[in-house]
Simulated scan of single mutants.
Amino acid sequence: MQGFRPSFRILHWIIAMLVFAVWPLGMLLKYFKDDVKLDFYLLHESFGFLVLWLMLLRLGMRLTQGRPTHPPDWTGNVSRIVHWLLYAALIVMPLSGFLATNAHGFPLQWFGILPVWSPIGREPAIAPFFSVLHAGTAWLILALVGLHIAGALFHRIIRRDDVFQRML
């Protein structure tokens, strides 16, 4: 089976590392003391915003360059569904977080340097919607990443085919 291009592999692993940093950081924010909480919020938001742009780049690459074929069995169908749900969730997640932050009245200063235009401004009436969407998508991503890893391990350990190797 054909492997992924190096650009896809690099982007995959950069996004994976960012998700594995941003996700737990977001879950732990409520436990930080006030004197450092805003610093960690800034990191969470800034890296999350980076995930959004990298996912949009990856989606563009996927739509224009394609990808190696899925296995022609049920695992290929499951893989296709999980991958598209991951793409959607990894775009909805940072976008909803960005809009929630904006709606709560806190415009993003990307890494404390670059002010990011706020498309909605302070809108307390819709802020809870974006916050709930953001939190719900976080749990969806956790489940999808678990399925993704389980699928990769299934191919490596049970099937012993080359599907696992395609992204290494």
Rank of each mutant, 00 (worst) to 15 (best):
D35W: 02
L11N: 12
D39W: 12
L18P: 01
M27H: 10
L25C: 10
L29N: 02
I15S: 07
L29I: 04
K33I: 05
L11C: 06
V19M: 11
G26C: 09
F32W: 14
H12Q: 04
M27Q: 15
K37M: 00
I14S: 04
P24S: 02
D39I: 14
G26H: 15
L25S: 13
K33G: 02
I14G: 03
D35S: 09
V19H: 11
M27A: 15
V19P: 12
K30Q: 09
D35T: 11
V22Q: 03
K37A: 00
M17A: 13
W13C: 09
D34T: 12
K33A: 07
F32L: 14
W23H: 11
L18R: 02
L28Y: 08
V22T: 11
L25M: 15
G26E: 09
Y31I: 08
Y31G: 07
L18S: 06
V22S: 03
V36F: 02
I14P: 01
V19Q: 09
Y31H: 15
K37W: 00
V19F: 09
V19W: 06
L38T: 06
A16S: 13
M27N: 15
D35A: 07
A16M: 10
A21G: 10
W13R: 13
M17S: 12
Y31L: 11
D35M: 03
I10T: 06
M27P: 13
D34F: 08
G26A: 10
K33Q: 08
I14A: 09
I14Q: 04
V19K: 07
L29K: 05
R9A: 06
D39P: 06
L18N: 03
Y31W: 15
F20C: 02
L29W: 01
I10H: 02
K37Y: 00
M17I: 11
M17K: 08
W23R: 07
P24D: 01
M17L: 12
D34P: 05
I15C: 09
K37I: 00
L25D: 08
I14K: 07
A21W: 13
L11P: 05
W23E: 15
K30F: 14
R9D: 03
